[in-house]
Write a protein that binds this DNA or RNA. Structure first.
Lengths: 217, 217, 217, 217
DNA sequence: TATGAATGAGGTTTCATTCAT
DNA sequence: AATGAATGAAACCTCATTCAT
């Protein structure tokens, strides 16, 4: 008796996440408009009507998918900067690798594609996402950049101006992964991509001074 | 009487492009599925039925939009490499600036967003686009990189591995422009963005000349 | 323990009536089709599933609502005629006032509107209602009319032909009360309405002869 | 060429009325909620989608049905009072007979039942109907009553108080016709009904003065 | 007895596509 | 060549009904 009730209750609590998980997959796969709620329900193993016990409409489901997807992103990483002591370049490298592991490889990696694709149809959600995710991520990286500049490890530059540029190759890669990659348009393996990306970027950021000082000598 | 007829004929020949232009705008704005053919027709100033005189279906219209959008891209730039003599870094800079002018600023700049958003719904088109546009662009940049490496201007690296990484900030910017930008989520002004991008990237690519100069000495 | 059990039992026996009462309210308010069983359950303070312990289907609930509503109507009034001795006009007046008190003012006053609205969707129920309520009411009034005619108080007329006509203003009033009245479309206050109605009707029914006989005298 | 175009245009102009006519029938027959748009379309001989070329939604169709139904009512009768010269009782009789002919016998006779049934679900429409139809009809009858009172033909009474009462038997009859009548619950034939109604009502309204004066004497 | 999560048939509504004009 | 009225398949959503608990 307690077991079944628990099973039910657990079910009821687990449902929304099962549903948003199925929806995320399909929204990323086919886009919001093209995804039929039947499919979402089928993939989650429930009937169409069940969706409406948990979400008022397709649009609300969409919002929930995005909101749900944020949480892992927000929880992750913010303290990474504070904890990590070493040089900024190593910290940056650590963040990049971790981001790919946690976001790039996981289903929530589909969200960026989804956001860019649907932003103009759901401006409030786009703004919400920008505020909650992009802005926070930006602050994180800017802090790293500042530390590097202060320590002389990075050349002096305006972190705000560079942050989008620096992050672009990661965003593009995760977007690519969920669009062209799935059509058989492949590119360099991810490990090489990340290695080359880090090298290019760190070379682009670092201070030349030591080298030049050497040459001055 | 002859004048109107000429105007008509001209009209008739111009029609398909007027239609694809209207369709491109709307597809970029709202996505393929969400765009109604009524709207496309209305924006092009014709009736819904007229669309079917020129395109067999909504999907064919979509393909035509992409195909049409390619031509300017293909025509442009390929000879730029051959013609431009100077150092690779200057050539790269010229390509970047020109690309932004010709693509980033024009309506066809919406195509990348469209492709990434719809790739999985239209894999053949995605492959077609990858083949015809991305691949060619890649070859163009690879050639520039090669020239720079050969001349010692760039450090030795595998051009194939870096080309996507290097181009990402431009892609992201043009995607951003047609999605989040339209929701009021803005970022650094484009001139600063491009300047910082070029500096970061060229620093990341170039040879550490001073050191090498010493060794040359 | 016995106390609660008793309360439970009382509850259990009272349930069907609580449910039909809630249903009547809502059916009158919104119509049969538009009323959701959730609402009925909610208004009765039970869960949706509980309804099905007492009624096989929404339609059965509807039937029960009507059947339930009949009982007070049937119990009331039939003996009123037999008991009341005085002149027919006073008896008629008494019936009218009592009917308005017992039916017009009570929730079951909504039933006529409901019946007229849903008759064609539930013909058997309509016939059942006609048989059990309208027919009986008619017989009641016809008896009164007969008595009045026989006593010379009313002019000679065919009671069967007049009964619907005479009763119409009361029916209309109670229907109005549950439809237009609720939309803010009001009319004469009920006391004036009834007074004027009685005057008009009794003038319409009464015999002029006595007066003339008097004058003859 | 002109013929076909005319046919099309004529069709396009006739359509809304064909559709509202079909809808009126069905709404009266089954109620608003229970009527399926498929049926309306089928009865009008068009496809479901066609409805949406002319009406934005089921609710708008409903409103149009009511609005459409008003016009004949409004056009009719208002001048009847002005034109008719004779005694008020004859005018009243004429109005009653004409109303039954024009409204009672025609499909728009279903509207009252519809209004009373759906008033609480569509309060604005109910108010609109009350304002445009009931109120005007009331004014019409009140004018007739006034004329009769002024001429001494009718006893002195407050016309406003009596108008609903007097009209009730006609309303009830037309409502009955579209509900219980269709379930086989019949009543007195209409000609007898109207005759008895007129007699009862005119007796109820007329002045007894001469007789009473005699008795007073 | 009572609950309320789950179902799925059925309704309204949309829109790509057709075709008579 | 151009129109736009008409279609009907397919989507979203509702809600009466069921049933495990």
């Amino acid at each position: 008796m307690p077991a079944p009730k628990t099973r039910w209750k657990r079910r009821k609590e687990a449902r929304p996440q099962e549903l948003t998980a199925a929806a995320l997959e399909l929204f990323v796969e086919k886009g919001f408009a093209t995804t039929r709620l039947d499919e979402v329900a089928a993939r989650a193993g429930v009937s169409k009507g069940t969706l409406y016990l948990y979400f008022e409409s397709k649009e609300e489901l969409f919002k929930a998918v995005i909101r749900e997807g944020l949480l892992p992103l927000l929880a992750e990483g913010e303290d990474l900067v504070a904890r990590m002591p070493g040089p900024a370049s190593e910290l940056f490298q650590a963040i990049v690798m971790r981001w790919w592991e946690m976001v790039g490889e996981s289903p929530i990696g589909g969200i960026p594609k989804l956001i860019f694709a649907e932003a103009r149809n759901f401006p409030e959600i786009a703004r919400f996402y920008a505020e909650e995710v992009i802005e926070r991520g930006k602050r994180l990286l800017v802090a790293v950049f500042r530390r590097g500049i202060d320590s002389g490890e990075f050349r002096p530059f305006d972190p705000e101006s560079l942050v989008h540029i620096v992050f672009s190759p990661l965003m593009m890669r995760v977007i690519w992964k969920h669009s062209l990659d799935c059509c058989g348009v492949t590119t360099v393996p991810i490990d090489i991509y990340l290695r080359e990306y880090l090298e290019l970027t760190l070379r682009g950021l670092r201070n030349d001074v030591p080298v030049q000082q050497e040459s001055v000598k």
